[in-house]
């Protein structure tokens, strides 16, 4: 049956991958320089190159929202963003929301309202909610629900997520 051997490497010339490009990102207020291939997404750059694994990969196709981060203060999908295209950008991830050990009001509200179970979608939910607060477009419960619909929570914590966002809105002076 099967035998162990390293697959014989063909002698023909190699197929090149991509030349690395040097980019600078300001991630959570820290300037980082990294060498990435053009095909490396911002998500993989954060997780594999900068070891910021708080940002999650849930589908890698922009369908679940787990990879949501803030770029220049706007929430975006990092799995559909090439890192090279964000050279020079300011990125905020879940690791950058708590200031000096004090939780961001959204983080505290998510704990208070048990707005998660497994926790995997949570960083994306919180970053998305931070973007939502900054946008200032959600005034009603229905608007929060609609504008948070890009973040799937398979544990089904949605009502608690909405309650947590409402709590944080109160704290940040937004109308709920």
């Amino acid at each position: 049956m099967a035998r162990t051997s390293t697959a014989a490497r063909p002698s023909k010339q190699t197929i090149p991958t991509q030349d690395k490009i040097s980019i600078a990102l300001t991630v959570n207020n820290v300037e980082r320089t990294l060498q990435v291939s053009p095909w490396t997404t911002l998500l993989d750059a954060l997780r594999d190159h900068l070891e910021l694994t708080g940002t999650k990969k849930g589908c890698d196709h922009g369908q679940c929202g787990a990879c949501t981060v803030l770029v220049e203060g706007r929430r975006i999908i990092s799995c559909l963003t090439l890192a090279v295209m964000k050279d020079g950008a300011k990125v905020t991830t879940i690791e950058g929301l708590a200031a000096n050990g004090a939780l961001h009001p959204l983080q505290q509200a998510f704990i208070d309202h048990d707005a998660f179970q497994c926790g995997y979608c949570t960083p994306g939910q919180i970053c998305s909610a931070a973007g939502l607060l900054a946008e200032g477009k959600a005034k009603t419960v229905n608007e929060i629900r609609e504008l948070m619909s890009g973040n799937i929570c398979r544990c089904g914590a949605y009502p608690n997520i909405v309650a947590a966002i409402q709590q944080a809105m109160g704290q940040t002076g937004e109308k709920s």
Binding site: L52, I94, E95, A98, L103, F110, I111, D114, G119, T122
Partner: peptide
């Protein structure tokens, strides 16, 4: 409240 809540909301849960 969840005792692992802080790890999950700060992204430190691996």
């Amino acid at each position: 409240s969840r005792v692992d809540g802080r790890a999950k909301v700060t992204g430190t849960a691996k």
